[in-house]
């Protein structure tokens, strides 16, 4: 869904706000989800994530979502899966080196980031992805990180 993906970048500011509200909601829901058990929830939540984020961002289910640091343009759609900015091969007009018919994910990310309330998030240095998390829910992981590791 390339068209929706591009819509998402153009509305990065709105989606950023929705995402922040959604994260707060998820963290509130934390204790309940904890009672049900994250392992039991993993499959249905991951499926929900795959469908919703797939629709809006062409999500590749890396399991370590950083959309709010990449202008709501999913970096895993970069053929080189670059998470820290564009490669040096971007074609004239901002097209991808590997897929010349596609606009560079990072050209989109830069435009999206400038619409956002936290445009500086794109400057954060991203660690390499943990390949074990591929296909797993990043929402549940965020809840675990925000509640278990840093209890409020």
């Amino acid at each position: 869904m390339l068209r929706l993906r591009l819509w998402s970048v153009r509305h990065a500011r709105l989606l950023e706000a929705i995402y922040e509200a959604f994260e707060r909601f998820l963290i509130k829901l934390g204790p309940l989800l904890e009672r049900i058990g994250h392992e039991r929830l993993e499959k249905p939540v991951a499926a929900l994530e795959r469908i919703s984020k797939g629709l809006f961002f062409d999500c590749q289910m890396c399991g370590e979502c950083i959309l709010s640091s990449t202008g709501m343009s999913c970096p895993m759609n970069c053929p080189k899966t670059l998470r820290n900015g564009p490669c040096g091969g971007v074609r004239p007009g901002g097209f991808c080196e590997v897929k010349p018919e596609m606009r560079c994910v990072w050209v989109e990310a830069w435009e999206g980031s400038r619409l956002m309330r936290k445009p500086e998030a794109i400057r954060a240095l991203q660690k390499p992805v943990d390949a074990r998390l591929k296909g797993r829910s990043s929402w549940l992981r965020v809840i675990r990180e925000k509640t278990r590791d840093n209890p409020p």
């Binding site: 900015g85 564009p86 091969g89 971007v90 901002g94 560079c104 050209v107 435009e111 794109i122 400057r123």
Partner: peptide, 19 residues
């Protein structure tokens, strides 16, 4: 490291250098 000051997104390139 390498840098390409001549490709899009041009305004991001100095920030990428900083990164």
């Amino acid at each position: 490291a390498a840098t390409n000051p001549f490709t899009e997104p041009l305004e991001f390139q100095p920030i990428r250098l900083a990164k």
